[in-house]
């Protein structure tokens, strides 16, 4: 069950990375700190205002989405205009990540000083709602909530990208920015949108992950490799692909290490991070398009009639 919750959270963050990459060709390193802020928004609000952590997950999403917009207007926008190379784009987000990491740390210090709570390391797992019990063990709500969120997100994104004008404009910009601009689509709006949604997905993923794993300021730095692995296994060309990729990587990390620990011995647990690393490297070296990406892309993006609708979307 924990594996499902963990994988769901990773899937959401991986989708965020992919969305930003698709729209702006930027590998967003700052995703690490955006996820970290997701953890901390939920933790801080819960510690201060009480209730259940779930109340604050949307807030975490909004906050990280806001960070995404800030990053876009502060840095990314100018670099995109200047036509910077992918490496420069990546480096700039790394700089932002360091600053954000520092702000998380400062915030954690602040929480510790002012509210006298240990904000350097926290476990919210036990604060989760208990739905019932099975074999004497409490069944937590988080796996169900995460799965629901992922499913709702898939449906909502699908409807948005297929049925609304702006969704079609987003797809058009991703496929061919110049052509979309010629047809009257403002790519700026699409960039802002993808940074906001990408950031929000990071915050959402972080907020939900805070209920399955312990939180600390550098938590984003630790799991960013898994997030990148998820989005690369997904192919970096489809949000749905990366949701699946993130889910698969998360599951294989969680279940794979449990199986190995049972068969070889507990010492293998420390090498858990090697599973997503291996998934990442093998995908890139053997099949860089990503297994899930190519299949889903065919179904979702290259459906017949796309061109016509892009035209009408742009004209309207």
């Amino acid at each position: 069950m924990k594996a499902v919750a963990y994988s769901g959270g990773i899937a959401l963050t991986a989708a965020g990375i992919t969305l930003i990459y698709m729209a702006t060709r930027t590998f967003n390193f700052a995703h690490a700190s955006m996820v970290g802020w997701g953890f901390y928004v939920v933790f801080a609000c819960y510690s201060i205002f009480g209730g259940t952590p779930y109340y604050y997950v949307p807030l975490a999403a909004l906050f990280s989405g806001f960070l995404g917009i800030l990053l876009y207007f502060g840095v990314n926008r100018w670099l995109l205009r200047a036509g910077a190379s992918p490496i420069t784009l990546m480096m700039s987000t790394l700089g932002v990540d360091l600053v954000l990491l520092a702000t998380i740390n400062i915030f954690a210090d602040y929480l510790t000083d002012v509210y006298k709570i240990n904000a350097r390391y926290f476990v919210l797992e036990l604060k989760d709602l208990v739905l019932g019990s099975m074999d004497g063990l409490g069944v937590r709500a988080i796996p169900f909530v995460t799965v629901c969120v992922v499913v709702v997100l898939i449906v909502a994104l699908h409807l948005f990208l297929k049925k609304t004008k702006f969704g079609i404009a987003v797809r058009a910009t991703i496929e061919n920015t110049q052509l979309a601009t010629v047809l009257g689509i403002n790519p700026e709006k699409v960039y802002i949108f993808s940074w906001f949604v990408g950031g929000a997905l990071a915050g959402l993923g972080g907020g939900l992950l805070s209920l399955t794993m312990s939180g600390y300021p550098t938590v984003g730095m630790t799991i960013i490799v898994t997030m990148f692995a998820g989005s690369i296994v997904g192919g970096l060309s489809s949000i749905f692909g990366s949701l699946l990729g993130g889910f698969l990587v998360g599951l294989s990390e969680y279940i794979g290490i449990t199986v190995l620990a049972l068969s070889i011995g507990g010492w293998i647990l420390a090498y858990r991070i090697l599973i997503p690393l291996a998934a990442l490297v093998t995908t890139l070296l053997i099949y860089p398009q990503g297994l899930a990406g190519i299949k889903l892309k065919k179904i979702i993006i290259k459906t017949p009639g796309t061109g016509g609708r892009v035209g009408s979307g742009g004209g309207g």
Partner: peptide, 23 residues
Amino acid sequence: INPAWFEYILVGLAIIILVLFRP
């Protein structure tokens, strides 16, 4: 604030400013 974080901000800002204004 703890100077360790100050160091992070400094390096991070240096990267951002360099990338934006003096690549």
